[in-house]
Each structure stands twice: as C-alpha cells, then as structure tokens.
Simulated assay, not measured.
Amino acid sequence: MMTMRTYLFMAILFFSGWFAIGTNAQEVSVTITTDEGYSNPPIIEKMQYNLSQVLSEINRAQKENRPLNTVGLALEPFARESLTMLWANVHFYCDDTEVVERCWVFDDGKEYMVSHIPLIIKVQGEDFGNGTYQEAVVDFDQQGQIKDFRFSLGAVGESLKNCGTVAKAERQIKILSYCERFRTAYNQKDINFLRQIFSDDALIITGSAVSVKSGENRYDNKVKVTYKKQDKQEYLANLQRAFARNKWIDVKFSQIGDNGEQGGCPGITQSQINPNMYGVRLRQEWKSTNYSDTGYIFLLWDFADEDNPVIHVRTWQPEWVGGVQQQPDDAISTLGAFDL
C-alpha cells in the first residue's frame, strides 16, 4: 500500500516530466557548418546559440499564441523589426528540434548568412496556408548578432540537389539574348541599363581566391575562396568606380552545356516552384586595363514581366584556385541553391 509520501513523490516525478516535455519540446538546437578553409569556433558558437534562442522563442510564442518576446535576443534593430513584422502577419514554427545548416562567410568574417532554416506556417483563424513549408534566411554580423531574419524566395526540400527543368529552346534563345544585352552593358559602361536590369532586392555574391598561411613555412600556404555579399546599390557603386578607372572593359560570356561542366546542372534551367524564374550558368571572361579574370557566373532571372525581366541574384566564383581548375559550385550556381 502506497504511503502519502510515495504518492507525493510520484506526483512530483509526473509533473516534472510533463513540464520538461512541455518546455523542452519547443527548444531548437542549431549546428552551423562552414567550409573547410574557415575556422572560428567562438563566433560559430555565438551564432548557433543566438539562432537557437530565436527559433526556440518562435516555437514557444506559436504554441502559446502570443506576440514574440524579443527582449534579450541577439537581434539588431532591423532584424527585430523584420521578424516582428513577419509575426504580425503570420505565425510559424520550426518543426525540427535539431537544425544543421551551412553558413556562408563573407568578407573573411565581416558578415555571415545561414539559409534553408525549416519553418511551418501556422495561420491564425484560417485553413488556407496552414502547414505550408517555408524556409528562412538569417544574416549575422561579425559579432554573431542577427542582422536580418527573412523568408526565402521559395522553398523545396533537399534544395541544393534541385537543378530545375531544362528550359525550352525558344525560351533559352530569349534568355541568352538578354544575357548578351547584360554583357554588352559592361562593354558600354551602361550603368543605367544595369540599374534597370537588377531588381531592387538583388543579391550579389562574389568569390575570390586568397592565400591562407597554414604553417610557419611560407611554402605551406594554401589558397581558399572567400565570398563577399553586396546589395544592388553597393554593387553598382563599385561598378561605377571600375568604369571610371578603365577606358575599356571587355566582358565575354560562353555557355555551359546541357550536361553542365562535369555532369552537373544544365546551363539554363526553369524553376519547378516558380515557372517565371530561370537560372543561367555561364563562363565569364573579364579583361580590363587594371584587372582580368575568368570565372563562373550565375544569374537568377525573373520573367514575370516578359518585356522587362529582372535579375534577382548574381553570383561569381573563380575558375582557377591555387592553380587548380574549379567546376561551378552547385551551392551558389543553381536554382536549388536559392530555394527554387
């Protein structure tokens, strides 16, 4: 026969277990991975912790159907406002208790970006849209603070494996004609055309090869690719300076074939998520008085307006790194890399 003390002890165990399930079930742990050439455990740990705290608060707020409590979260003012505005329109939660995602490192650690964060939409008082899968993108500063929290353009599972559908021949011709106009604008230094062709929210990512000393012996130096992210205004401002420095800039594009370079994604593909979106991978040669390079360029075109298409994303990576020829990196040169 159980004594009162036994009943009390069992009750404490039961309620403790229930409380743990009720709270820990919403907690989200985050693991961030980086390229092999980058190592900064303290900043990575900060980003993991800060993103974990935000996702966990999102889950608690969604479950309790209340406003987000952003007090104490490592959110810069813009990110706080962005997240609050999203929450005012629709609630969502992270269905994964463990999130493992790759981090893009820009400007040797001045800025970081983590994408493909899985979310489930939970519309208040509506059936439409409930359960929709959506991915988020988070930007961090060099202290690991969250600079921005936004929804991605679209979302598909295993997105980096998604090349898209090979575009029809007629569409390929039209896209290539716009690519030629785009290329010619660099030759002509036509900054006004470039201002029109890039969308206001355009993302520009540029990779460059840099030497990294791996030991005391200078011959032990290795070469890695670092990435720099710019918005439309930054990119155009830098481009104008390049135009001013060089009397002539010779830019040439060559197509990447239907089978990619080495069996990768084809050169021109149509999004399976948004049929107005097309990804174009090209080999670019840039020659000018002060600088020359060869690399792979990826353009994300939006043909929602047939007569006025715009570019949402432009990425570039070097073809040669440390004397070794590279192939286009699917992580920044496919529709799937941008959730399309």
Rank of each mutant, 00 (worst) to 15 (best):
L51Y: 06
M2G: 00
F106T: 01
T6I: 13
N89G: 06
Y178Q: 12
Q327I: 12
Q143N: 13
S115W: 01
C103T: 11
Y49T: 14
L153W: 09
A74P: 00
G207F: 01
G322I: 04
E64H: 00
E81K: 15
N276K: 09
P328V: 14
F182W: 14
L119T: 13
G125I: 04
S115Q: 12
M2W: 10
V100E: 14
N65C: 01
A337V: 04
R218H: 09
T165H: 10
E285G: 05
C163V: 01
D250N: 14
S29K: 13
I256V: 15
Q317D: 04
S214T: 15
D95Y: 13
G17E: 00
V210R: 05
Q327M: 11
K224L: 07
V212F: 02
K252V: 04
E158S: 03
F15S: 09
G144C: 11
T132D: 13
L239Y: 07
I44H: 09
Y227Q: 10
S56N: 03
D339K: 05
V166K: 13
T6F: 03
Q142L: 02
V54T: 13
A11I: 15
L8I: 07
F198N: 05
V123Q: 12
A79L: 12
M85G: 11
F182Q: 11
G336C: 00
F9V: 11
A167E: 02
V223A: 02
M47C: 03
G336V: 03
A209C: 00
I268W: 11
S177L: 12
L83S: 03
P309I: 01
Y186G: 07
E57Y: 01
R241L: 07
Y291D: 02
A136W: 13
E285W: 06
Q145W: 10
F303T: 09
R314D: 03
D139P: 01
G154W: 04
A20D: 01
R241E: 07
V223R: 03
T226E: 15
S292N: 14
A237M: 08
R218F: 01
D329H: 08
E135Y: 03
G263R: 03
Q143L: 02
A209M: 00
N24K: 12
R181T: 05
F198S: 08
A167T: 11
L55Y: 02
L86C: 00
F338H: 13
V212C: 09
K161R: 10
L68K: 12
R150M: 08
G322S: 02
Y133E: 15
Q255N: 14
G263N: 15
K222P: 08
E216Y: 07
I12K: 05
A136L: 11
D307N: 10
Y291Q: 03
L282M: 15
G144M: 04
S39A: 12
W320N: 08
Y291W: 11
C179M: 06
G144W: 07
L13P: 02
S56D: 13
G157L: 05
N59D: 10
Q134Y: 06
R245T: 01
G322C: 00
S214Y: 03
P42S: 03
D127Y: 01
D330S: 14
Q134T: 12
L194M: 05
E234S: 10
F243H: 07
L119H: 14
L86H: 10
M47W: 02
I173D: 08
I256G: 04
E57L: 05
D108F: 04
D148C: 02
Q325T: 06
N40L: 00
V114G: 05
T269W: 05
F253C: 09
I173F: 03
D108P: 00
S177G: 11
L160Q: 09
V251K: 13
S333A: 15
K161G: 07
